[in-house]
Nucleic acid binder design. Structure first.
Length: 423
RNA sequence: GGAGAGAUGGCAGAGCGGUUGAAUGCACCGGUCUUGAAAACCGGCGUACCGAGAGGUAUCGGGGGUUCGAAUCCCUCUCUCUCCGCCA
């Protein structure tokens, strides 16, 4: 959620920024400021009436103490009108308040100045490409065929047990999952992230805290009986650890990591995009989350990018980094870098990581703040990224490291897998 | 699942219809004293919103109600604890 203060003070800059998302928010913001104006006036009026009532109540209390019953009772009659007025104003102020919140929820984050304007993925900017496309001297096979050939993943069996998008990993396939999780967690730990194992279901307040609610309600699995949501990413429980927290000083840098399964309904997906491991309802991911002083979030983002680069390089994967354009940047993000790995067999780039800074967009909702040196409270910045999500990494590893003899396991992974080839 | 108890400031813990944003202790910050520190003493010390400011309003788990007035009474929701049952 954008800070109301910011919209008041920098209306033009906010509008300009949102244009990069291909959004014209002029009407919403004009309306918002109108409501805000009226809200402030009504609120001042309401508080005046409340102050008057409080004053009278105090006087009546004093009169009773002095035994002046009649005067006290006389004073009571004065309150009827004021109470009526207070109640009306209260209803009005609450209504305006709700209307403002509603409008604020509609506005996405203002993109960082580096974010290019644009509509969709075609307008993203490639900022770095490392490695080059592998040349195969045999016909490259897509990962779903390799998974079947080496009996690593059984998609049909997953359909039997649960449904499409819930694969069953077997044997070396299962072990590869475990190895990747362990590898990612240890790399994160080396980079200074503390590991957490959070709950996989969260309450409504947490959903609102990181911005999955109210807009993306349909993307989460919902447990009606207990009013809980299955997490779509570890970002939700990890970031919400710091909901309603005021850090005691400005000297902080919080780095968290966690492995969790992630659950996404992916309503509306179909066709070749969902083939094999490309898009699943349940998948494994190691997430990194940071809570930073505003002055450090740029550096933090760079560090996270370097971390993810390191992972991909250790896995021997050819990748590129994209700075997403306004239109392709997520609702809550101020700037997002996507990492993509090239799949020769599928002849396309697969998104394997997304690293974002949210500035104060999440912390506004989370009420996540810190105390400045002069005792003021100020909003923190939040950032997060996948480091990494498993399915497309597995797809990339299988496809890019395939040989006629089998799939070669990257050196860095061998101590976790215990085998160096899948055949 | 059944029965009971409870939810107060960073923590502990009073208050149980009247001027209480809230006693007291601890923690924390500033000061006096000291070569320095400790102790002692003095002062300060939640959050949010409105306001240029003075100040005002809200907040004692959430929501609603009774009352001139609610942390205190009533309703409701959520959560926690204890005992019983079940169980990895």
């Amino acid at each position: 959620m954008l800070e109301l203060q910011r919209i008041r003070n920098e209306k033009e800059a906010v509008l300009e920024g949102l244009k990069k998302r291909n959004i014209d928010a002029a009407a919403t913001i004009t309306k918002l400021l109108e409501v805000d104006q009226e809200w402030r006036l009504s609120k001042a009026e309401l508080e005046g009436v409340s102050a008057e009532l409080n004053q009278i109540a105090k006087e009546i209390g004093d009169l009773f103490k002095q035994g002046k019953q009649e005067e006290a009772n006389a004073a009571k009659s004065k309150t009827a009108d004021l109470k009526e007025k207070e109640s009306t104003l209260k209803t009005k102020v609450d209504g305006l308040d709700a209307e403002m919140t509603q409008l604020l929820y509609q506005l996405p984050n203002v993109p960082n100045e580096l974010v290019p304007a644009g509509k969709n993925e075609l307008d993203n900017i490639t900022v770095l490409e490392v490695g080059s496309k592998r040349i195969y001297d045999f016909e490259a096979v897509p990962h779903w065929d390799l998974a079947k050939k080496y009996d690593l993943i059984d998609f049909e069996l997953g359909v039997k047990i649960t449904g499409a998008g819930f694969p069953i990993y077997k044997g070396k396939g299962a072990k590869l999952q475990r190895a990747l999780i362990a590898f990612f967690l240890e790399e994160a730990e080396k980079a200074g992230y503390e590991e957490f194992i959070p709950p996989l279901v969260v309450n409504e307040a947490s959903g609102y805290g990181t911005g999955q609610l109210p807009d993306k309600e349909g993307q989460m699995y919902y447990v009606n009986e207990d009013d809980l949501y299955l997490i779509p990413t570890a970002e939700v429980p990890l970031t919400n650890i710091y909901r309603d927290v005021i850090l005691p000083s400005e000297d902080f840098s919080i780095k968290m990591t966690g492995y969790t399964p992630c659950f996404r309904r992916e309503a509306g997906s179909y066709g070749k995009d969902v083939r094999g491991l490309n898009r699943l309802h349940q998948f494994d991911k190691v997430e990194i989350v940071r809570i930073e002083h505003p002055s450090n979030s740029e550096k933090a983002l760079e560090e996270m990018i370097d971390h993810v680069k390191g992972l991909l390089e250790k896995l021997g994967l050819h990748y590129r980094i994209l700075r997403l354009c306004g239109g392709d940047t997520g609702f809550a993000s101020a700037m997002t870098y996507d990492f993509e790995v090239y799949s020769a067999a599928q002849e396309k780039w697969l998104e394997v990581s997304s690293v974002s800074r949210f500035d104060t967009f999440q912390s506004t909702r989370l009420k996540l703040r810190f105390k400045t040196a002069d005792k003021k409270t100020q909003l923190c910045h939040t950032l997060n990224g996948s480091a990494l999500a498993l399915p497309r990494i597995v797809a990339s590893l299988l496809e890019n490291h395939q040989t006629p003899e089998g799939v070669i396991v990257p050196e860095a992974l061998r101590k976790y897998t215990g085998f160096d080839i899948i055949n």
